[in-house]
């Protein structure tokens, strides 16, 4: 199976409460960059689908990672190559020059070049929080989609049985490849991905894998090509325009209560919510 995984770097989500807003934009200077966590889950999913878990070094298929950004975003790609992806593509642009829709249109052109059987994405970026690219891309390609996947079982590399996490439960869909799938966080649990290549007795550990030092060195030799955004999408018009950003008023810390009786009293007479 050939899998394409789009990746994005985001400012460290653990420091999201330290962000500042400047003139019409969110100030990211001084914040540490990290791969978007959901994109890391998508890479892990792609790796599990293209290997025998008992011999994870041999790729039984091909995993290509792609990011949209300036030269320095190649760090994010190299990190994915070090964990096992085969090759990487950087589409040269900046965050300000793209929106979710342009990203999806450019990805469509890239899919037509690379011809993957599956595009795996994180369900949302933890900076923009829009949760849209997988769905837009699926429609532009005319492919089926399975969003917010919490579990995937590959069926003979031809179809995927996907359990989607939805409000109030889960939905099971079977999608015939080629398809677009976006992943939720539980996909990287030990039982998140069941691949036809891996014996059912094999158990993954929870979470994403880390790269060994040797693999980090070897990743420097893997193919990383650069593509111009306009080569993928001559039309670079955006559909959304942000005119400003602001910070929500901080919620004031309340009071510490000594006893449960006092708490119930306050909820009744002060907050009047009981």
């Amino acid at each position: 199976m050939k899998i394409l995984v789009p990746l994005k770097r985001v400012s460290d989500p653990d420091n999201a409460n330290k962000i500042k807003v400047g003139a019409g934009k969110v100030e990211t200077t001084g914040l540490e960059w990290k791969p978007n966590p959901f994109d890391e889950y998508a890479v892990e999913t792609a790796l599990r689908l293209t290997e025998n878990g008992t011999n994870a070094k041999a790729r039984l298929g091909e995993v290509t990672v792609v990011t949209f950004g300036p030269k320095e975003t190649e760090t994010t790609l190299r990190a994915a190559l070090a964990t096992g992806a085969d090759k990487a593509i950087r589409v040269d642009t900046t965050d300000d020059a793209i929106d979710g829709d342009l990203l999806a249109r450019a990805l469509k052109a890239l899919v037509e070049r690379e011809k993957p059987d599956l595009v795996l994405l994180g369900k949302q970026q933890v900076d923009g929080d829009a949760n849209q690219v997988a769905q837009l891309l699926a429609e532009y390609l005319g492919w089926p989609q399975a969003t917010f996947a919490g579990q995937i079982t590959s069926e003979a590399d031809k179809a995927l049985l996907v359990s989607r996490e939805v409000d109030g439960g889960s939905i099971k869909l079977r999608v015939t490849l080629p398809a677009v799938v976006s992943v939720d966080l539980r996909i990287v649990n030990a039982v998140g991905v069941t691949s036809m290549h891996t014996p059912p007795t094999h158990k993954y550990s929870d979470g994403v894998r880390f790269a060994a030092l040797m693999a980090i060195m070897a990743a420097k030799k893997k193919s990383l090509t650069e593509v111009k955004l306009t080569d993928l999408s001559p039309d670079t018009a955006l559909k959304i325009k942000y005119t400003g950003f602001d910070l929500p008023p901080a919620r004031k810390a309340g009071v510490k209560i000594k006893t449960v009786a006092e708490l119930v009293q306050k909820l009744k007479t002060e907050a009047k919510v009981l």
Binding site: D129, K239, I240
Partner: peptide
């Protein structure tokens, strides 16, 4: 129509318009 939407896990809000 001018929209406001939470970004960065609700730690900031963006004001936006759709151009279509």
């Amino acid at each position: 129509l001018v929209y406001r939407r939470p970004v960065y896990a609700g730690n900031a809000y963006g004001t936006c318009e759709l151009l279509t």
